[in-house]
Design a protein around this nucleic acid. Structure first.
Lengths: 231, 231
DNA sequence: CATATTTGTTACATTAAGATTACACCTATA
DNA sequence: TATAGGTGTAATCTTAATGTAACAAATATG
């Protein structure tokens, strides 16, 4: 799965430069020109890492960082602060408010890519390897095991990734395009209907352990994973 | 509205192939056989996306891209560069000069269509999906869930959109035409009275959670959503 | 009070969306 | 090379959602 980076930076030339440089390193780039827009993109796309400019037109980088770290869904996303030379003191503040690293303009694309990878290496093993449990279903990426109601479930690679993605983002509806982008990967070209089939396979597998209503269809929108109503 | 693509490509057979393939995917196709012609078509038709061949008889794809990105009217139009194998380095240059993606010949129609859609998705504005709460009713677009008085409400797509629209604009009366335009979408031909039926369905669904007077009839005018009088 | 107009309600045919199945095609591995 | 598991696609079946019409009820109007 391609890594999604969000660049929050108001000056388009700099943003473009970063975009080109980072695309070349194999990252998928999302962009935002202001703090508010950045928050929206985070909400909609859940990037793997955020490059956050210190000076933004609508709110400061710190405010954005604070907001991100204050929300359950975004608190785990690592942030690299981008500061201009001479804002040295702000680095400290940035780190205090939850940034994972910082980089000073001007920087070389190589340095940027290296820092990004370093941060991801530091953060992602924890996030990815962590066992996820939701109600009666548990998924352990380390041992590649899924257990539903105590029953061992066997899944194909795609079903596994799909379930993992759903469980990392429960209670949230995804349409087929989003699932293809996020589970299959951005550069894969498959029919949307294929998602249906894998949903079916996953549901079937989960029902082996009696977990039947975890994947819900939202007609006209997509699918959602959530613990079923306990009645 | 159908999406307009402009294909700038000097070799007619390739152009035709692309045209046929992309028409089948529901795009409206414009064509140009040279860079100059391409610029003219952009000026006249304002396509939603441009497929730009790298090698053109009169000017290079980069020159065209530069011209396009240099003009206010065309600078926002996304460009996908079409390169032949072995022009790998040019891809980078293309991206630097403002192309949004590239594709290497030969490519499958499916890949092309997917890339186009991916670029359009990336470029088009990301809408905010914030949870809305009014009195006892809450609607969360992220999870596509509506809760009234703590009770989960199940709604069809249209009722959901209708309620969302009302909740984003509470205390405001809309007539049936306005609701059709804003909820159903412009240029959709349905009877005005259809709105009544959906209002009825929405009211019924909300009353499952005891929320009964949220949608008010304004005789001779239309409907309004607002928290009922607390008596 | 009678009548016209507007809205509420229900039932029903049609349509669109999703579920399911079967099958062909990989790809890896014994 | 034979086999098995996994994946994507297309065809078909199933079900939910939608729009319309017909009638009932409510509200205005003369």
């Amino acid at each position: 799965m391609q890594i999604k980076l969000l660049i929050v930076e108001d000056e388009k030339p700099i943003r473009d430069m970063m975009k080109v440089a980072l695309s070349r390193h194999g990252f998928h780039i999302l962009e935002a020109g202001s703090g508010g827009e950045g928050l929206d993109v985070v909400d909609a796309e859940q990037p793997d890492l955020i490059l956050l400019d210190w000076m933004l037109p609508d709110m400061s980088g710190i405010d954005v960082a604070k907001k991100l770290k204050g929300h359950y869904e975004s608190r785990e996303i690592p942030i690299i602060m981008v500061t201009a030379r001479g804002e040295e003191e702000d680095k400290i503040k940035g780190l205090e408010f939850g940034a994972d690293d910082y980089i000073t303009k001007p920087f070389s694309p190589k340095e940027l890519a290296a820092r990004i990878r370093a941060v991801l290496r530091r953060v992602s093993p924890i996030k990815t390897e962590k066992k996820v449990e939701i109600s009666q279903v548990s998924l352990d990426p380390g041992s590649h095991q899924v257990v539903a109601n105590g029953v061992d479930i066997s899944l194909g690679p795609t079903e596994f990734k799909l379930l993992h993605y759903f469980m990392l983002n429960p209670n949230r509806v995804y349409n087929r395009t989003q699932l293809l982008d996020n589970v299959w990967g951005a550069n894969v070209f498959v029919e949307e209907r294929t998602v249906d089939v894998h949903i079916r396979r996953l549901r079937k597998a989960l029902s082996e352990g009696g977990c039947d209503n975890y994947i819900q269809t939202v007609r006209g929108t997509g699918y959602r994973f959530s613990a079923p109503e306990t009645e």
